[in-house]
Design a protein around this nucleic acid. Sequence first.
RNA 1: GGAGAGAUGGCCGAGUGGUCGAAGGCGCACCCCUGCUAAGGGUGUAAGGGCCAAAAGCCCUUCGAGGGUUCGAAUCCCUCUCUCUCCGCCA
Length: 426
Amino acid sequence: MLDSKQLRADTENVARNLARRGFVLDLAAFRSFEERRKQVQIEADRLRSERNANAKAVGMAKGKGEDASALLKRGEELTQQLSSAETALDAVQAESDAWLMGLPNLLHDSVPEGRDESANVEVRRHGIPRSFEFTPVDHVDVGAKLGGLDFEAAGRISGSRFAVLRGGIARLHRALAQFMLDLHTGDHGYQEIYAPYIVSGDALTGTGQLPKFEQDLFALKGERALYLIPTAEVPVTNLVREQIMTPEQLPMRYVAHTPCFRSEAGAAGKDTRGMIRQHQFDKVELVHMVKPTESYAALEQLTAHAEEVLKRLELPYRVLALCAGDIGFGSSKTYDLEVWLPGQGKYREISSCSNCEAFQARRMQARWRNPETGKPEPLHTLNGSGVAVGRAMVAVLENYQNADGSVTVPAALRPYMGGIEALRPS
RNA sequence: GGAGAGAUGGCCGAGUGGUCGAAGGCGCACCCCUGCUAAGGGUGUAAGGGCCAAAAGCCCUUCGAGGGUUCGAAUCCCUCUCUCUCCGCCA
Protein backbone atom coordinates (compact mmCIF):
# COMPACT_ATOMS: atom_id res chain seq x y z
CA MET A 1 0.00 0.00 0.00
CA LEU A 2 1.25 3.45 -0.82
CA ASP A 3 1.42 6.23 1.73
CA SER A 4 -1.91 7.98 1.25
CA LYS A 5 -0.44 11.24 2.50
CA GLN A 6 2.26 11.08 -0.13
CA LEU A 7 -0.34 10.18 -2.71
CA ARG A 8 -2.35 13.27 -1.84
CA ALA A 9 0.55 15.67 -1.47
CA ASP A 10 2.71 14.46 -4.32
CA THR A 11 0.19 13.01 -6.74
CA GLU A 12 2.03 13.95 -9.92
CA ASN A 13 5.28 12.26 -8.95
CA VAL A 14 3.49 9.14 -7.77
CA ALA A 15 1.68 8.95 -11.09
CA ARG A 16 4.94 9.43 -12.97
CA ASN A 17 6.63 6.70 -10.98
CA LEU A 18 3.81 4.21 -11.49
CA ALA A 19 3.73 5.04 -15.18
CA ARG A 20 7.20 3.49 -15.45
CA ARG A 21 5.55 0.16 -14.74
CA GLY A 22 2.95 0.88 -17.36
CA PHE A 23 0.41 1.52 -14.64
CA VAL A 24 -1.97 4.36 -15.31
CA LEU A 25 -3.00 6.19 -12.17
CA ASP A 26 -6.51 7.50 -12.63
CA LEU A 27 -5.95 10.94 -11.20
CA ALA A 28 -9.43 12.21 -11.95
CA ALA A 29 -11.05 9.31 -10.12
CA PHE A 30 -8.68 9.71 -7.19
CA ARG A 31 -9.33 13.43 -6.83
CA SER A 32 -13.06 12.96 -7.12
CA PHE A 33 -13.46 10.43 -4.35
CA GLU A 34 -10.81 12.16 -2.31
CA GLU A 35 -12.96 15.28 -2.43
CA ARG A 36 -16.05 13.32 -1.52
CA ARG A 37 -14.25 11.51 1.30
CA LYS A 38 -13.06 14.73 2.83
CA GLN A 39 -16.49 16.25 2.78
CA VAL A 40 -18.28 13.23 4.21
CA GLN A 41 -15.66 12.58 6.86
CA ILE A 42 -15.69 16.14 8.14
CA GLU A 43 -19.46 16.01 8.38
CA ALA A 44 -19.48 12.67 10.19
CA ASP A 45 -16.81 13.84 12.65
CA ARG A 46 -18.78 16.99 13.33
CA LEU A 47 -21.98 15.07 14.01
CA ARG A 48 -20.23 12.63 16.28
CA SER A 49 -18.65 15.44 18.20
CA GLU A 50 -22.01 17.09 18.69
CA ARG A 51 -23.68 13.83 19.68
CA ASN A 52 -20.98 13.17 22.28
CA ALA A 53 -21.39 16.65 23.77
CA ASN A 54 -25.15 16.25 23.78
CA ALA A 55 -24.99 12.87 25.51
CA LYS A 56 -22.71 14.35 28.12
CA ALA A 57 -25.17 17.17 28.69
CA VAL A 58 -27.94 14.60 29.23
CA GLY A 59 -25.85 12.89 31.85
CA MET A 60 -25.18 16.13 33.68
CA ALA A 61 -28.78 17.27 33.51
CA LYS A 62 -30.00 13.97 34.90
CA GLY A 63 -27.37 14.15 37.60
CA LYS A 64 -28.76 17.46 38.72
CA GLY A 65 -32.32 16.21 38.41
CA GLU A 66 -33.18 18.62 35.63
CA ASP A 67 -35.51 17.99 32.72
CA ALA A 68 -33.55 16.51 29.81
CA SER A 69 -36.30 15.91 27.32
CA ALA A 70 -35.13 18.59 24.85
CA LEU A 71 -31.64 17.15 24.91
CA LEU A 72 -32.96 13.64 24.40
CA LYS A 73 -34.91 14.76 21.38
CA ARG A 74 -31.86 16.50 19.94
CA GLY A 75 -29.90 13.31 20.58
CA GLU A 76 -32.32 11.26 18.56
CA GLU A 77 -32.00 13.63 15.63
CA LEU A 78 -28.24 13.57 15.81
CA THR A 79 -28.09 9.80 15.95
CA GLN A 80 -30.26 9.61 12.88
CA GLN A 81 -28.18 12.12 10.93
CA LEU A 82 -24.99 10.46 12.04
CA SER A 83 -26.20 7.08 10.92
CA SER A 84 -26.67 8.25 7.34
CA ALA A 85 -23.40 10.17 7.39
CA GLU A 86 -21.60 7.04 8.51
CA THR A 87 -23.19 4.95 5.82
CA ALA A 88 -21.94 7.43 3.26
CA LEU A 89 -18.49 7.50 4.83
CA ASP A 90 -18.23 3.72 4.87
CA ALA A 91 -19.07 3.60 1.19
CA VAL A 92 -16.48 6.20 0.23
CA GLN A 93 -13.90 4.65 2.51
CA ALA A 94 -14.45 1.19 1.03
CA GLU A 95 -14.09 2.54 -2.48
CA SER A 96 -10.96 4.45 -1.54
CA ASP A 97 -9.40 1.46 0.26
CA ALA A 98 -10.09 -0.91 -2.61
CA TRP A 99 -8.50 1.52 -5.02
CA LEU A 100 -5.49 2.04 -2.77
CA MET A 101 -5.00 -1.70 -2.29
CA GLY A 102 -4.86 -2.13 -6.04
CA LEU A 103 -1.95 0.26 -6.54
CA PRO A 104 1.48 -1.31 -7.01
CA ASN A 105 4.53 -0.18 -5.10
CA LEU A 106 6.64 2.79 -6.16
CA LEU A 107 9.86 1.89 -7.95
CA HIS A 108 13.33 2.74 -6.75
CA ASP A 109 15.23 5.19 -8.97
CA SER A 110 17.81 2.56 -9.84
CA VAL A 111 15.26 0.27 -11.48
CA PRO A 112 15.97 0.08 -15.23
CA GLU A 113 13.36 1.26 -17.69
CA GLY A 114 11.55 -1.29 -19.82
CA ARG A 115 8.25 -2.96 -20.53
CA ASP A 116 8.98 -6.64 -20.14
CA GLU A 117 11.62 -9.19 -19.27
CA SER A 118 13.60 -8.46 -22.42
CA ALA A 119 14.65 -5.17 -20.82
CA ASN A 120 16.00 -6.70 -17.62
CA VAL A 121 19.63 -5.79 -17.03
CA GLU A 122 22.29 -8.37 -16.30
CA VAL A 123 24.27 -7.16 -13.31
CA ARG A 124 26.82 -9.94 -13.00
CA ARG A 125 27.54 -13.52 -13.91
CA HIS A 126 29.24 -16.25 -11.93
CA GLY A 127 30.66 -19.57 -13.07
CA ILE A 128 31.19 -20.89 -16.56
CA PRO A 129 28.70 -23.37 -18.01
CA ARG A 130 30.37 -26.74 -18.29
CA SER A 131 31.14 -28.02 -21.77
CA PHE A 132 29.76 -31.51 -22.30
CA GLU A 133 31.48 -34.21 -24.31
CA PHE A 134 27.97 -35.49 -25.08
CA THR A 135 24.67 -33.75 -25.69
CA PRO A 136 23.18 -32.91 -22.31
CA VAL A 137 19.52 -33.75 -21.81
CA ASP A 138 16.97 -31.97 -19.65
CA HIS A 139 16.14 -33.01 -16.11
CA VAL A 140 13.10 -35.01 -17.16
CA ASP A 141 15.30 -37.29 -19.24
CA VAL A 142 18.01 -37.35 -16.59
CA GLY A 143 15.36 -38.38 -14.09
CA ALA A 144 13.95 -40.99 -16.45
CA LYS A 145 17.34 -42.64 -16.86
CA LEU A 146 18.03 -42.45 -13.18
CA GLY A 147 14.57 -43.52 -12.12
CA GLY A 148 12.76 -41.82 -9.30
CA LEU A 149 11.32 -38.75 -11.02
CA ASP A 150 7.75 -39.75 -11.68
CA PHE A 151 5.25 -37.38 -13.25
CA GLU A 152 2.89 -40.09 -14.31
CA ALA A 153 2.21 -41.33 -10.81
CA ALA A 154 1.69 -37.75 -9.67
CA GLY A 155 -0.78 -37.26 -12.49
CA ARG A 156 -2.84 -40.21 -11.31
CA ILE A 157 -2.81 -38.97 -7.73
CA SER A 158 -3.24 -35.23 -8.18
CA GLY A 159 -3.28 -34.22 -11.83
CA SER A 160 -0.86 -32.27 -13.94
CA ARG A 161 1.93 -30.09 -12.56
CA PHE A 162 2.82 -32.37 -9.68
CA ALA A 163 5.74 -34.72 -9.24
CA VAL A 164 6.56 -37.80 -7.20
CA LEU A 165 10.22 -38.22 -6.21
CA ARG A 166 11.66 -41.53 -5.18
CA GLY A 167 14.83 -42.89 -3.67
CA GLY A 168 18.02 -40.99 -4.43
CA ILE A 169 16.20 -38.13 -6.12
CA ALA A 170 13.91 -37.66 -3.14
CA ARG A 171 16.96 -37.67 -0.93
CA LEU A 172 18.74 -35.17 -3.17
CA HIS A 173 15.73 -32.89 -2.86
CA ARG A 174 15.82 -33.15 0.92
CA ALA A 175 19.60 -32.69 0.98
CA LEU A 176 19.30 -29.44 -0.95
CA ALA A 177 16.81 -27.98 1.51
CA GLN A 178 18.88 -29.06 4.52
CA PHE A 179 22.04 -27.67 3.00
CA MET A 180 20.42 -24.29 2.33
CA LEU A 181 18.96 -24.04 5.83
CA ASP A 182 22.28 -24.89 7.43
CA LEU A 183 24.11 -22.35 5.26
CA HIS A 184 21.75 -19.52 6.14
CA THR A 185 21.42 -20.28 9.83
CA GLY A 186 25.06 -21.25 10.31
CA ASP A 187 27.01 -18.85 8.10
CA HIS A 188 24.59 -16.02 7.38
CA GLY A 189 23.03 -15.51 10.80
CA TYR A 190 19.38 -16.21 10.06
CA GLN A 191 16.91 -17.55 12.56
CA GLU A 192 15.06 -20.61 11.34
CA ILE A 193 11.29 -20.43 11.32
CA TYR A 194 8.68 -23.14 11.10
CA ALA A 195 5.39 -21.49 10.17
CA PRO A 196 1.84 -22.39 9.12
CA TYR A 197 1.26 -23.47 5.52
CA ILE A 198 -2.33 -22.30 5.76
CA VAL A 199 -2.96 -18.61 6.25
CA SER A 200 -5.79 -16.13 6.52
CA GLY A 201 -6.85 -13.68 3.87
CA ASP A 202 -5.56 -10.91 6.11
CA ALA A 203 -2.05 -12.32 6.06
CA LEU A 204 -2.17 -12.50 2.26
CA THR A 205 -3.49 -8.96 2.05
CA GLY A 206 -0.58 -7.90 4.24
CA THR A 207 2.05 -9.21 1.86
CA GLY A 208 0.14 -8.10 -1.23
CA GLN A 209 -1.14 -11.35 -2.79
CA LEU A 210 -4.69 -10.26 -2.02
CA PRO A 211 -6.96 -8.79 -3.15
CA LYS A 212 -5.45 -8.66 -6.61
CA PHE A 213 -4.00 -12.11 -7.21
CA GLU A 214 -6.53 -14.47 -5.72
CA GLN A 215 -6.61 -16.55 -8.91
CA ASP A 216 -3.02 -17.63 -8.29
CA LEU A 217 -3.84 -19.09 -4.88
CA PHE A 218 -5.33 -22.34 -3.67
CA ALA A 219 -8.26 -21.49 -1.42
CA LEU A 220 -9.56 -23.96 1.14
CA LYS A 221 -13.19 -24.90 1.31
CA GLY A 222 -15.00 -23.91 4.46
CA GLU A 223 -16.57 -21.06 6.33
CA ARG A 224 -13.41 -19.07 6.74
CA ALA A 225 -11.25 -17.64 3.99
CA LEU A 226 -8.11 -19.73 4.32
CA TYR A 227 -5.46 -20.34 1.70
CA LEU A 228 -2.43 -22.50 1.11
CA ILE A 229 0.69 -20.35 1.15
CA PRO A 230 2.15 -19.49 -2.26
CA THR A 231 5.47 -18.74 -0.53
CA ALA A 232 6.87 -18.69 3.01
CA GLU A 233 7.16 -14.95 2.55
CA VAL A 234 3.52 -14.75 3.64
CA PRO A 235 3.62 -16.34 7.11
CA VAL A 236 7.18 -15.21 7.87
CA THR A 237 6.75 -11.55 6.88
CA ASN A 238 3.48 -11.46 8.79
CA LEU A 239 5.37 -12.30 11.98
CA VAL A 240 5.69 -8.55 12.54
CA ARG A 241 2.15 -7.61 11.60
CA GLU A 242 0.52 -5.17 14.02
CA GLN A 243 3.75 -4.94 16.00
CA ILE A 244 5.93 -2.00 16.94
CA MET A 245 9.54 -3.07 17.04
CA THR A 246 12.28 -1.32 18.99
CA PRO A 247 15.37 -0.18 17.04
CA GLU A 248 17.40 -2.83 18.89
CA GLN A 249 15.21 -5.61 17.51
CA LEU A 250 16.18 -4.68 13.95
CA PRO A 251 17.33 -6.05 11.65
CA MET A 252 15.41 -9.32 11.84
CA ARG A 253 16.56 -12.09 9.52
CA TYR A 254 14.48 -15.21 9.09
CA VAL A 255 14.82 -18.32 7.00
CA ALA A 256 12.10 -20.89 6.45
CA HIS A 257 11.80 -24.04 4.39
CA THR A 258 8.22 -24.65 3.31
CA PRO A 259 6.22 -26.10 0.51
CA CYS A 260 4.58 -23.49 -1.72
CA PHE A 261 1.29 -23.88 -3.52
CA ARG A 262 0.38 -21.95 -6.64
CA SER A 263 -2.51 -22.46 -8.96
CA GLU A 264 -0.62 -20.61 -11.72
CA ALA A 265 -3.94 -19.71 -13.29
CA GLY A 266 -2.30 -17.39 -15.77
CA ALA A 267 0.49 -19.73 -16.81
CA ALA A 268 -1.42 -22.38 -18.78
CA GLY A 269 0.78 -23.92 -21.42
CA LYS A 270 4.01 -22.50 -19.98
CA ASP A 271 6.73 -24.88 -18.81
CA THR A 272 4.38 -27.83 -18.91
CA ARG A 273 7.27 -30.28 -19.10
CA GLY A 274 9.13 -31.24 -15.96
CA MET A 275 9.52 -29.68 -12.56
CA ILE A 276 10.06 -26.06 -13.51
CA ARG A 277 6.52 -24.94 -12.86
CA GLN A 278 4.52 -26.99 -10.37
CA HIS A 279 1.44 -26.47 -8.25
CA GLN A 280 3.49 -27.60 -5.26
CA PHE A 281 7.18 -26.95 -4.75
CA ASP A 282 9.58 -26.45 -1.87
CA LYS A 283 11.45 -23.27 -1.27
CA VAL A 284 13.87 -21.92 1.29
CA GLU A 285 12.88 -18.34 1.86
CA LEU A 286 14.85 -15.44 3.34
CA VAL A 287 13.06 -12.51 4.98
CA HIS A 288 14.49 -9.32 6.45
CA MET A 289 12.78 -6.63 8.52
CA VAL A 290 14.99 -3.55 8.67
CA LYS A 291 15.19 0.16 9.35
CA PRO A 292 14.17 2.13 6.25
CA THR A 293 17.63 3.64 5.83
CA GLU A 294 19.17 0.18 5.67
CA SER A 295 16.92 -1.63 3.26
CA TYR A 296 18.98 -1.21 0.10
CA ALA A 297 22.12 -2.46 1.79
CA ALA A 298 19.98 -5.34 3.05
CA LEU A 299 18.81 -6.12 -0.48
CA GLU A 300 22.42 -6.50 -1.64
CA GLN A 301 23.16 -8.65 1.37
CA LEU A 302 20.12 -10.87 0.96
CA THR A 303 20.88 -11.34 -2.72
CA ALA A 304 24.47 -12.27 -1.88
CA HIS A 305 23.16 -14.86 0.61
CA ALA A 306 21.02 -16.44 -2.09
CA GLU A 307 23.94 -16.37 -4.53
CA GLU A 308 26.11 -18.16 -2.00
CA VAL A 309 23.86 -21.22 -2.31
CA LEU A 310 24.59 -21.44 -6.04
CA LYS A 311 28.28 -20.73 -5.54
CA ARG A 312 28.64 -23.58 -3.08
CA LEU A 313 26.70 -25.89 -5.36
CA GLU A 314 29.02 -24.73 -8.14
CA LEU A 315 26.14 -23.89 -10.41
CA PRO A 316 26.67 -21.14 -13.01
CA TYR A 317 24.25 -18.27 -12.66
CA ARG A 318 23.63 -14.66 -13.46
CA VAL A 319 21.98 -11.82 -11.59
CA LEU A 320 19.41 -9.60 -13.27
CA ALA A 321 18.01 -6.28 -12.15
CA LEU A 322 14.37 -6.47 -13.16
CA CYS A 323 13.12 -3.61 -15.27
CA ALA A 324 10.18 -1.39 -14.42
CA GLY A 325 7.68 -3.41 -16.43
CA ASP A 326 8.72 -6.81 -15.08
CA ILE A 327 8.98 -6.05 -11.40
CA GLY A 328 6.45 -7.52 -8.97
CA PHE A 329 3.42 -5.70 -7.61
CA GLY A 330 4.77 -5.16 -4.09
CA SER A 331 8.42 -4.62 -4.84
CA SER A 332 10.42 -1.42 -5.25
CA LYS A 333 13.46 -3.21 -6.60
CA THR A 334 14.09 -6.83 -7.48
CA TYR A 335 17.08 -8.94 -8.43
CA ASP A 336 16.42 -12.28 -10.06
CA LEU A 337 18.96 -15.06 -9.88
CA GLU A 338 18.99 -17.26 -12.94
CA VAL A 339 20.75 -20.60 -12.94
CA TRP A 340 22.23 -22.21 -16.03
CA LEU A 341 20.23 -25.19 -17.31
CA PRO A 342 22.21 -27.16 -19.92
CA GLY A 343 19.12 -29.14 -20.91
CA GLN A 344 17.40 -25.95 -22.04
CA GLY A 345 20.59 -24.15 -22.94
CA LYS A 346 19.54 -21.09 -21.03
CA TYR A 347 19.45 -19.36 -17.69
CA ARG A 348 16.23 -19.85 -15.71
CA GLU A 349 14.92 -18.06 -12.63
CA ILE A 350 15.78 -19.79 -9.37
CA SER A 351 15.47 -16.89 -6.94
CA SER A 352 13.86 -13.50 -6.76
CA CYS A 353 15.06 -11.01 -4.14
CA SER A 354 12.95 -7.94 -3.47
CA ASN A 355 12.95 -4.85 -1.35
CA CYS A 356 9.31 -4.05 -0.64
CA GLU A 357 10.26 -0.96 1.35
CA ALA A 358 7.21 0.06 3.44
CA PHE A 359 4.63 -1.38 1.03
CA GLN A 360 3.91 -4.55 2.98
CA ALA A 361 4.61 -2.93 6.34
CA ARG A 362 1.84 -0.42 5.77
CA ARG A 363 -0.61 -3.16 4.85
CA MET A 364 0.40 -5.20 7.89
CA GLN A 365 0.84 -2.25 10.23
CA ALA A 366 4.35 -3.42 10.97
CA ARG A 367 6.25 -0.55 12.52
CA TRP A 368 9.37 0.36 14.41
CA ARG A 369 9.89 3.25 16.79
CA ASN A 370 12.20 5.73 15.14
CA PRO A 371 14.28 7.26 17.93
CA GLU A 372 14.72 10.44 15.92
CA THR A 373 11.02 11.18 15.84
CA GLY A 374 9.91 9.04 18.77
CA LYS A 375 7.05 7.85 16.57
CA PRO A 376 6.14 4.48 15.16
CA GLU A 377 6.93 4.37 11.45
CA PRO A 378 6.55 1.58 8.92
CA LEU A 379 9.63 -0.61 8.75
CA HIS A 380 10.99 -2.07 5.52
CA THR A 381 10.55 -5.69 4.51
CA LEU A 382 12.58 -7.75 2.07
CA ASN A 383 12.27 -11.28 0.86
CA GLY A 384 14.07 -13.59 -1.47
CA SER A 385 14.34 -17.23 -2.30
CA GLY A 386 17.46 -18.79 -0.95
CA VAL A 387 16.66 -20.72 -3.16
CA ALA A 388 13.82 -22.63 -4.83
CA VAL A 389 14.49 -26.25 -3.93
CA GLY A 390 12.77 -27.92 -6.88
CA ARG A 391 14.51 -25.76 -9.43
CA ALA A 392 17.83 -26.19 -7.63
CA MET A 393 17.37 -29.91 -8.01
CA VAL A 394 16.62 -29.48 -11.70
CA ALA A 395 19.84 -27.49 -12.00
CA VAL A 396 21.87 -30.15 -10.20
CA LEU A 397 20.42 -32.96 -12.31
CA GLU A 398 21.16 -31.11 -15.54
CA ASN A 399 24.56 -29.62 -14.70
CA TYR A 400 25.96 -32.71 -13.00
CA GLN A 401 24.70 -35.32 -15.47
CA ASN A 402 27.15 -37.80 -16.94
CA ALA A 403 27.22 -39.74 -20.20
CA ASP A 404 26.36 -43.01 -18.46
CA GLY A 405 23.16 -41.57 -17.04
CA SER A 406 24.55 -41.06 -13.57
CA VAL A 407 24.54 -37.73 -11.76
CA THR A 408 27.49 -36.58 -9.70
CA VAL A 409 26.50 -35.28 -6.25
CA PRO A 410 27.89 -31.76 -5.72
CA ALA A 411 30.55 -31.76 -3.02
CA ALA A 412 28.55 -29.42 -0.81
CA LEU A 413 25.66 -31.90 -0.70
CA ARG A 414 27.62 -35.07 0.04
CA PRO A 415 27.44 -34.68 3.82
CA TYR A 416 23.67 -34.66 3.40
CA MET A 417 23.69 -37.69 1.11
CA GLY A 418 25.53 -40.10 3.34
CA GLY A 419 28.75 -39.34 1.53
CA ILE A 420 27.75 -40.86 -1.80
CA GLU A 421 29.41 -39.32 -4.83
CA ALA A 422 26.87 -40.04 -7.50
CA LEU A 423 23.34 -41.15 -8.17
CA ARG A 424 23.32 -44.05 -10.59
CA PRO A 425 20.60 -45.61 -12.73
CA SER A 426 19.03 -48.40 -10.73
C1' G B 1 -15.69 -33.33 19.94
C1' G B 2 -17.99 -32.09 25.25
C1' A B 3 -17.96 -28.64 29.70
C1' G B 4 -16.36 -24.18 31.83
C1' A B 5 -13.48 -19.45 32.31
C1' G B 6 -11.55 -15.39 29.97
C1' A B 7 -9.84 -11.32 26.11
C1' U B 8 -8.96 -3.72 28.89
C1' G B 9 -2.95 0.78 27.30
C1' G B 10 4.49 -1.74 26.59
C1' C B 11 3.19 -5.33 30.81
C1' C B 12 0.06 -6.50 35.27
C1' G B 13 -4.67 -5.13 36.70
C1' A B 14 -9.44 -2.19 38.36
C1' G B 15 -13.74 -0.77 36.22
C1' U B 16 -21.56 -3.50 35.12
C1' G B 17 -25.02 2.46 31.44
C1' G B 18 -23.14 9.03 31.77
C1' U B 19 -17.49 14.39 32.42
C1' C B 20 -13.77 6.72 31.35
C1' G B 21 -8.96 6.94 26.70
C1' A B 22 -10.01 4.41 31.04
C1' A B 23 -8.06 3.99 38.71
C1' G B 24 -3.75 1.64 40.75
C1' G B 25 0.85 -0.77 40.02
C1' C B 26 5.18 -2.18 37.06
C1' G B 27 8.28 -0.66 33.23
C1' C B 28 10.30 3.48 30.55
C1' A B 29 11.88 8.93 29.94
C1' C B 30 13.12 13.52 32.11
C1' C B 31 13.73 16.52 36.57
C1' C B 32 14.62 17.21 41.93
C1' C B 33 16.51 15.53 46.53
C1' U B 34 19.86 12.48 48.84
C1' G B 35 24.32 10.42 48.81
C1' C B 36 26.92 4.93 48.70
C1' U B 37 26.47 -1.28 49.06
C1' A B 38 20.21 1.51 48.19
C1' A B 39 16.18 4.55 48.44
C1' G B 40 12.73 8.94 48.22
C1' G B 41 9.84 12.85 45.57
C1' G B 42 7.85 15.15 41.04
C1' U B 43 6.39 15.25 35.91
C1' G B 44 5.45 12.72 31.60
C1' U B 45 4.48 8.14 28.99
C1' A B 46 -1.13 4.30 23.54
C1' A B 47 -2.30 3.78 18.44
C1' G B 48 -4.86 5.20 14.01
C1' G B 49 -7.31 9.07 11.28
C1' G B 50 -9.22 14.14 9.94
C1' C B 51 -8.94 19.69 9.55
C1' C B 52 -4.21 22.84 8.56
C1' A B 53 1.03 24.41 3.49
C1' A B 54 3.21 22.97 8.12
C1' A B 55 3.74 23.48 13.40
C1' A B 56 0.64 24.58 17.28
C1' G B 57 -4.08 23.53 18.16
C1' C B 58 -8.80 21.38 17.64
C1' C B 59 -11.82 17.15 16.38
C1' C B 60 -12.96 11.84 15.48
C1' U B 61 -12.04 6.56 16.25
C1' U B 62 -10.15 2.46 19.13
C1' C B 63 -11.22 -1.52 25.95
C1' G B 64 -10.46 -9.23 20.87
C1' A B 65 -13.70 -8.57 15.87
C1' G B 66 -18.50 -7.58 13.79
C1' G B 67 -23.61 -6.40 14.55
C1' G B 68 -27.69 -4.68 17.97
C1' U B 69 -30.22 -1.88 22.22
C1' U B 70 -29.73 3.43 24.01
C1' C B 71 -29.75 10.48 23.84
C1' G B 72 -25.16 7.93 25.64
C1' A B 73 -21.77 1.25 25.78
C1' A B 74 -15.32 -1.05 28.25
C1' U B 75 -20.00 -1.92 30.92
C1' C B 76 -26.44 -4.76 28.43
C1' C B 77 -27.90 -8.41 24.07
C1' C B 78 -26.43 -11.52 19.59
C1' U B 79 -22.68 -13.73 16.31
C1' C B 80 -17.66 -14.84 15.40
C1' U B 81 -12.34 -15.34 16.54
C1' C B 82 -8.62 -16.34 19.88
C1' U B 83 -6.56 -17.89 24.79
C1' C B 84 -6.72 -20.88 29.27
C1' U B 85 -8.59 -25.23 32.39
C1' C B 86 -10.88 -30.13 32.66
C1' C B 87 -12.72 -34.51 29.94
C1' G B 88 -12.50 -37.32 25.34
C1' C B 89 -9.47 -38.36 21.05
C1' C B 90 -5.08 -38.39 18.85
C1' A B 91 0.76 -37.42 16.14
